[in-house]
Amino acid sequence: MNLYSALFYLLSLVILASTALAITRRNLVHAVVYLVLSFFGSALLFYLLGAPLLAALEVIIYAGAIMILFLFIVMMLNVERLEERFFPARQWVPAAVLGLLLAVVGLLAVSTQPGGDRLLKTAVAAPSAFGSYVFQRHWLSVEIVSLLLLIALAGVLFLGRDNDKGVSEEDR
């Protein structure tokens, strides 16, 4: 076991543990913070797997932007005081069974995959090379994604409108 594999297992442990903590927290702020930790672990894993640009973007977008957005919403809605009804048995038992089933099936699929035991060699996709690759080969996808983000922006603006007035008019 060399340094890289040790790092991999360490990171995996951190990611899994923090994710497991995140999904079981009743306090939403705690959950979000644990998930940020998990995403940091993912970013380091990306770096280890030779994707430095993605690692940076993971930190900036996921950990930085998305999770902060979550935090804002949690604080803005002030849902702390809303008690989440703790999982009724008729919900979490099927969920647990399904999770187990998915885990078993997924692991079986992974273990029977041909060539699965092939060792990954270290390699790096330099950020500049990766960027020019994406813009040369996937320029159309980049355009589509930008369009998607624009539409999302428009949708969020529409949804976030203060329409209390309209609703109250309807109610009357």
């Binding site: 919900q91 969920a95 998915l102 699929a109």
Partner: peptide, 21 residues
């Protein structure tokens, strides 16, 4: 809605079972 999602993933699991095994 969560039960519906559950059904979706159960079907996914069964499909994986069917195609891989």
């Amino acid at each position: 809605i969560q039960y519906r999602i559950l059904v979706v993933f159960a079907v996914v699991a069964l499909l994986v079972l069917h195609f891989f095994l």
